[in-house]
Simulated assay, not measured.
Amino acid sequence: MNKDELVELVIKYFKKVDAGDPSYLDLFSEDVDFFFPKFGQAKGKNALVEFGNRIGSSLISIWHDIEGFQITTAGNKVIVEGQEGGVMSDGTSWPDNNVSTGRFCSVFEFKGEKISRMYVYVDPDFPSQDLERISVLSGESHA
C-alpha cells in the first residue's frame, strides 16, 4: 500500500472510534502490538477489546480533531499528532484547554492492509484531576 492509502486507513480508524463503531477492530491484525499509558503493552485484538471496555467505562464520548492532525509517514508507519476531547462518565468535558489540551501522538505500523502496531502517547488524566503532579509541574508546589 502507498502512504496515502495507509493514511486513509488511519483516518478511517479515528472516524470509527469517534462514532463508537466497533468495526474499527477489522483494521487491525490478529496479533496487533498495542500500548497505551497506564494500560501498558499488550498483544492481540482481545487486548484492544479489553482496553476499549476499560476506557469506555470512563467516557461518555470522545472526538478527535481529524482536520487538524499533523501526519507524518515513514515506510509502513503513520504518525499522528493531534488533539482529542470528550465527556467523562461523570459529565466532565475535556480538555479544559488550561492544563489539559487533549494533545496526543499515535504511531501506527502496518503489515499489508492491517495495523500491526499502535502505540498511543497521551496523558490519560483527561480531565486534569491529578492535582499533585499538576501543582508540581505548574510551579505551584515546591515538593
Rank of each mutant, 00 (worst) to 15 (best):
V32G: 01
I134G: 03
D33I: 09
K12I: 09
F108V: 10
G82D: 06
V99K: 07
S100N: 08
S106N: 00
R133D: 07
N53D: 00
D90G: 12
V17P: 01
K16T: 07
G86Y: 13
Y24I: 06
V10F: 03
Q83I: 15
P37G: 12
S58Q: 15
S89N: 00
V78N: 15
Q70K: 05
I115C: 04
W63H: 11
Q83Y: 15
K45Q: 12
K12H: 07
V120I: 08
T101E: 01
L27G: 02
P127K: 01
F28E: 11
R103I: 05
K38A: 12
F35S: 03
L137F: 01
V10Q: 02
S57R: 05
G68V: 13
K12D: 12
F126E: 00
G44N: 08
G82S: 00
V122L: 13
G68P: 10
A42H: 11
I115E: 03
I60H: 14
D65S: 10
I62T: 12
L6Y: 04
G112H: 10
T92R: 15
N76I: 10
S116W: 04
V49H: 04
V7Y: 05
V49E: 07
G56Y: 01
Y24N: 06
M118R: 06
F14Q: 02
D31V: 06
G75R: 09
L137C: 08
L9N: 06
N46G: 09
F14I: 03
S61N: 02
D125G: 09
A19F: 03
I79V: 10
L137S: 00
I79L: 14
T92Y: 02
E140A: 07
N46S: 13
I71F: 10
S141T: 03
N97W: 05
V49N: 08
K15R: 06
V120E: 14
I66P: 13
D96A: 11
M1S: 08
E113W: 00
